[in-house]
Design a protein around this nucleic acid. Structure first.
Lengths: 235, 235
DNA sequence: ACCTGAACACCGTTCAAGT
DNA sequence: ACCTGAACACCGTTCAAGT
């Protein structure tokens, strides 16, 4: 499985021959551009200039497509090796953040997939390797892994689904406003006005890593500090 | 909106009159028992002894149903007030964990919903209130909130989707096994054998809070420690 | 006021038939 | 070997018609 099919040399068809890889790549582009809801086998076929039924010659079914997309995304996340564990974890966490932000549909999908692909397995193996080579005992390595990944995926899900400026999603903001009252939700209002204040809108425009990058790094460093302390306590 | 409709006294129909509340309650039960994928307007109507189209007299559409279900779940999460911030946050985090574990479809759904309902607004207001009354500056309160909720939701998503014992999901475990090799994934294999070892299976049987409860509390306390340190540094 | 039959525009997937 | 038309069993939703 996962063998790359080489298109026959003499193929002179107007469009390239379908392969598992081209199907997955097209699915990823479609999801990036129009969201995961817009990804149907019929539309995917259409994007490839083919009927939906043809896809079943190259992928088992839609679940197989989703698994393949997840694995493509996992392959984009960088895990540095041969570096101090804290640096390595920090860099891979930020890489994961940026990759998952670039594919807003991916985080929710990854967490809902049961069978990991080769890229995901390799990623996890490398990650655990970083911890083990830094002499994390296995129970602590497991907890470190769970804590860090819980944070990363949870953060991305919030970031991707929660547009905090009125400019981004005026419809959402105006829908919420009438339900929030000063009497019932004073603290919520205080936080919303902090979050939506103008200096943050400038941040949002800066790009690279998104407007939440500083917030992400706050929690990330907090967790890395905690792991360092836990590791120190064991020695 | 959200007014409870009182069924007419003289109603003598074989089944109770439909209300928004009864529709949402039935949807929640259906999702708890058969998963979110099994929740369609047609099946929901069937569960209520009615055609799918009747539901539209009580809810706007399926999105409205999903929003209502999320809000019911949010209402189950307990936020203690008038207690030291650390105790209050710890208790509400564990409450959130247990509630979200009891409704395995909820975490993913909550994070994908754009418009919060009244219970969610009240919950967030109370949570921010705990932080503000403990003199967290607003920027730190916001980051504390983001860090904690990222962790909680991310953790639940992993816990809900990752069955770690062969007994629970033999099909998943056997599907993964042939892909993992000792040469390519030594660290992954080491961790999997740690995670799947028999002493953990006993833990799984203990119930209340699930088999991951200790792991959840590890990361939770790590984050609470970090927040306490960050708060102390500000004073 | 509430329920429903019929209809519309979608889904994923199978399978026999085509090339 | 790969593609497709027809078909099946599903979706969410609308709307005119019923009571």
């Amino acid at each position: 499985m996962y063998v790359v099919k080489v298109p026959a040399k003499k193929a002179r068809s107007p469009r390239p021959t379908l392969t598992r890889e081209s199907v997955l790549a097209a699915a990823l582009v479609l999801a990036d551009h129009h969201g995961l809801d817009a990804l149907s086998m019929r539309k995917l076929g259409q994007a490839l200039g083919v009927e939906a039924m043809s896809l079943y010659n190259h992928v088992a079914n839609k679940d197989d497509v989703l698994d393949g997309m997840v694995d493509l995304v996992m392959g984009e996340i960088h895990v540095p090796v041969g570096r101090p564990w804290r640096d390595a974890l920090r860099e891979r966490s930020i890489s994961a953040h940026d990759v998952l932000l670039a594919h807003p549909w991916a985080a929710a999908l990854i967490e809902s997939r049961l069978s990991p692909g080769p890229q995901r397995l390799a990623h996890h193996n490398a990650l655990i390797g970083v911890l083990r080579e830094a002499d994390f005992p296995m129970d602590l390595a497991y907890r470190a892994f769970l804590t860090l990944d819980s944070y990363i995926y949870g953060f991305i899900l919030q970031e991707v689904n929660w547009p905090f400026t009125r400019a981004e999603r005026p419809d959402v903001v105006t829908a919420i406003e009438p339900m929030v009252t000063m009497e019932a939700h004073p603290h919520l209002i205080a936080m919303m006005s902090y979050v939506m204040d103008s200096s943050r809108e400038e941040l949002a425009a800066e790009g690279a890593g998104g407007a939440y990058r500083a917030e992400f790094e706050f929690g990330l460093d907090l967790i890395l500090d905690g792991l360092a302390a836990a590791l120190g306590a064991r020695r």
